[in-house]
């Protein structure tokens, strides 16, 4: 089921919310605030939220976007759920490595791989 959200597309994948971005560049502060509030709202609405964010097609990502992901990750954990990330192109993966956020996030090469074992602690 897709939503009407303008910046993200959300699909229900057997209980996992798969999120994809509409934009190639996730840099604009206002857009990031909008994305963050949409993700937080969805995570907040689920009992044990399982969310997979795919970065397929994303070319640029700012530190403000990383901040939004951290917020969503913390909230998902707090609510007994999980956040996983996938399909991150090498140049953006480097941003996660530089900031050591690859230690904080569960990152998989592909969405299919990320879905394996999702929900099992």
């Amino acid at each position: 089921m897709s939503t009407e959200a303008s910046r993200i597309r959300v699909t229900d994948l057997q209980g996992v919310m798969r999120v994809e971005f509409v934009d190639r560049d996730i840099l604009d502060e206002a857009a990031i605030r909008q994305i963050s509030s949409e993700l937080v709202r969805r995570v907040d609405a689920a009992a044990s939220p399982l969310m997979l964010i795919s970065f397929r097609g994303v070319e640029h990502l700012s530190s403000a976007a990383l901040g939004a992901l951290i917020t969503v990750n913390s909230l998902a954990k707090k609510r007994g759920g999980q956040l996983r990330l996938s399909d991150i192109k090498p140049s953006i993966l480097e941003v996660f490595v530089i900031t050591k956020l690859n230690k904080l996030f569960h990152i998989s090469d592909t969405a299919e791989r990320a879905l394996e074992g999702f929900g099992r602690k």
Binding site: S63, A64, G67
Partner: peptide, 17 residues
């Protein structure tokens, strides 16, 4: 921001990038 105790703070990474 790369210290373990600061990893979950959502801001402060721009300058290090």
């Amino acid at each position: 921001p790369t210290l373990d105790e600061n990893l979950e703070i959502p801001s402060g990474r721009g300058l290090m990038l």
